[in-house]
């Protein structure tokens, strides 16, 4: 096999079939092995969750993850946020001609490991190869189906007096990727928090039957996710700055580059809105990293307010423009 991806790897011919075969063997399972145009799925449950996302991260490999791991866990997490148990994943590649096959194999291996870890099957897939310059190295799209078979469920709206819990420190993914992409040279490198959340969600739902809403604060960071929920639920949100967990090294890197961690991406974090009386149980179910960071209010509808460390309050808006390293 050639050492790089060529247009022939996507032209429907022999090379393409060889490539598909290589990948299929990696993710091998009964449904995928049927090699038909569509996967026949046998799902007993009536209620499903379905989600899709595309992954274009640069660089492809970064401390704590890579585009493959991200593509599996990203979709697994989206499904989990609606209380679905992720079961099946589709996997589509758009590859720029000239892409090294060795790197593709590395990504595929990481996809395999991620799928095994999240206990999902890759049941259908696709590869397109585009001319040099028409794409930047490799893009991945995944879609996933989840079964609503947990005993508890997750709603779509936050309720007044709900308590907001987060499962750990913020801003790790965004800062890890930035440090790697811009070769900023900070050591030891910050690791992305990229991981699957489905088992944590499962534990939460065991302990509390009624989670109002969950969200994974990816692009746009915690502040943007909170604003989305304040808007869609028509409630106010109050957050306590001093209670928001962040690793000191991540905080320091944010300080040095002038980034506000509340707007930096996460890939292994979720916020969970629960009734006050269940808050402690849910927090315990998530684990020792979990923290209560705020609550839902009936005032300031559609707005997020931050209680600052010195006891003042200010509005916390959505992300306006991507943050850039600054000296001022």
């Amino acid at each position: 096999m050639n050492k790089i991806i060529t247009l022939s790897h996507g032209n429907g011919g022999r090379l393409m079939h060889e490539l598909i075969e290589t990948l299929r063997l990696k993710f091998s399972n009964k449904i995928l092995n049927e090699l038909s145009d569509a996967a026949e799925l046998n799902i007993k449950e009536k209620k499903l969750t379905f989600s899709t996302d595309s992954y274009v991260v640069k660089p492809l490999f970064f401390p704590g993850g890579d585009i493959g791991k991200l593509a599996v866990f990203g979709t697994v997490n989206d499904i989990s946020m609606r209380g679905g148990k992720p079961v099946f994943i589709s996997l589509a590649f758009i590859i720029e001609e000239g892409f090294p096959i060795q790197q593709l194999e590395k990504i595929a291996h990481s996809i395999k490991q991620a799928a095994a870890k999240a206990k999902v099957l890759i049941v259908t897939g696709d590869i397109k190869v585009v001319e040099k310059g028409a794409a930047d190295k490799i893009y991945i799209n995944t879609a996933g189906i989840g079964a609503m078979d947990y005993s508890g469920s997750v709603g779509t709206k936050a309720k007044v007096d709900d308590v907001i819990i987060i499962n750990g420190g913020i801003a790790e993914h965004g800062m890890a990727v930035l440090n790697a992409r811009e070769k900023l040279g900070f050591t030891p490198s910050i690791r992305s928090d990229c991981r699957n959340l489905n088992f944590e969600v499962e534990r939460c739902l065991k302990d509390s039957k009624n989670i109002s809403v969950m969200r994974d604060p990816t692009r746009g960071g915690l502040a943007t996710a909170l604003n989305e929920i304040a808007h869609s639920s028509n409630v106010g949100i109050e957050i306590y700055e001093k209670d928001i967990p962040i690793k000191p090294s991540v905080k320091r890197l944010c300080d040095v580059l002038g980034f506000d961690p509340l707007y930096v991406a996460n890939e292994g974090k979720f916020i969970c809105f629960v009734n006050e009386k269940n808050a402690k149980k849910v927090k315990r179910a998530i684990g020792p990293q979990a923290a209560i960071i705020g609550r839902v209010t009936s005032v300031h509808k559609k707005e997020v307010y931050l209680k600052t460390k010195i006891g003042s309050t200010r509005i916390l808006p959505m992300l306006e423009t991507d943050q850039l390293p600054r000296i001022c």
Binding site: T308, K309, I310, G311, S312, T313, R314, C328
Partner: peptide
């Protein structure tokens, strides 16, 4: 400017 931002961010002005 860093004073301006920190004053706004921490809410000092309101206090």
């Amino acid at each position: 400017g860093t004073h301006t931002v920190n004053i706004a961010r921490s809410g000092i002005k309101k206090l």
